[in-house]
Amino acid sequence: MSAQKVALVTGSANGIGKSIVEQLAQDGFAVVINDLELNREKAEAFAEELRQKGHTASVKFADVSDFDQVKEMVESLDRLDVMVANAAVVAPVDFITDDHINGWQKTFDVNVKGHLLCYKFAANKMIAQGWGGRIIGASSIVGRKPEPGRMTYTATKWAIRGLTQTAAYELGKHGITVNCYAPGLINSEIAQQYMASSPQAAEMMNQVIKSSAVGRIGEPEDVAALVSFLASEKSGFITGQTVSIDGGIVYT
């Protein structure tokens, strides 16, 4: 078994996940890029780019909402020290009074079931290895402070916080910490797509920027720096926490 620590990041062919992979590679991890098969070209080009820089990088294709695919992905690794469950989808603008629940099932399948499966199989792998590990999930600012028109997405991000806290209780005795990061508005592809989806969505996001203490949109590298710490040995006494990284919007 390789002595180099391994970090798997889901949904990491682009956006925040990509920045997290880049940071963890710089931190000395052998990184595993996960994404859907439809993003094969981006993922493989990214892995090659990292290898050209001297890092150890590989690619695993899997849909995080599929039990068997996640199980096979994790079990295929020689070792696993850090699991970052980053993959997510954003639901369309929706209100509690709408006469539909479009996007509800898919959003819960990817965001919540996807986290559950990543946590489950990472935990099993880490327990079997016997030396602990780090499991890190992706909540959101709306997992602390709901916003109108984001009913489905908000519900998933609150669920991830609960899942994270429960997993932390169960896995602490194995030397495994479980935390998640809660970004505010981050300059990523998924945020740009959401803002472009409707004038209403764009206005919501602009209000978020105006309400922050630092008065700017966040960058993927801001989130990657936080994940770097949560993945490190220095974070060993932190578990069950959701850490906000939002430029000063929600104070806890």
Rank of each mutant, 00 (worst) to 15 (best):
I135R: 00
E48I: 12
Y194F: 11
D66R: 11
V208L: 12
V142I: 14
D68E: 09
G15I: 04
Q69C: 14
V214G: 08
T152L: 13
A168I: 02
M205A: 08
T97I: 15
D68L: 15
G247S: 07
G143Y: 01
A57D: 01
A25K: 05
T97S: 15
G247Q: 10
A57F: 02
L24C: 07
D246P: 09
P183M: 00
G15Y: 01
V89H: 00
T164H: 06
L77Q: 10
Q23R: 14
T10H: 06
K42H: 10
G11Q: 03
V93E: 10
K53P: 05
Q241Y: 11
A91E: 01
Q52S: 09
S140I: 01
Q69G: 13
T154A: 13
I217D: 06
N86K: 04
L226H: 08
G215V: 09
A155L: 09
M195N: 02
N179Y: 02
W104S: 04
S235Y: 04
G172C: 02
V31M: 06
E203Q: 12
G175I: 05
T10Q: 04
T97N: 14
D35P: 05
A155T: 07
H115D: 13
S197F: 13
T154D: 05
H55F: 14
V21I: 10
L226S: 01
T252C: 15
F46P: 12
D99P: 06
D35H: 02
V70C: 09
A224L: 03
V93S: 11
D246R: 09
P92S: 03
G240V: 03
A128W: 10
G130H: 01
Y119A: 03
M204Q: 13
I20M: 10
K71V: 15
S244C: 09
P199C: 14
L171S: 08
E221C: 13
A159T: 07
Q193M: 13
K145V: 06
G133E: 06
K120Q: 10
D81W: 00
N206M: 14
H55T: 13
E44Y: 14
V82D: 01
Q105I: 13
L50I: 15
D222K: 05
D68A: 14
S58Y: 14
A57H: 01
K53S: 08
D35F: 02
I101P: 02
S12Y: 02
D35M: 04
I96M: 15
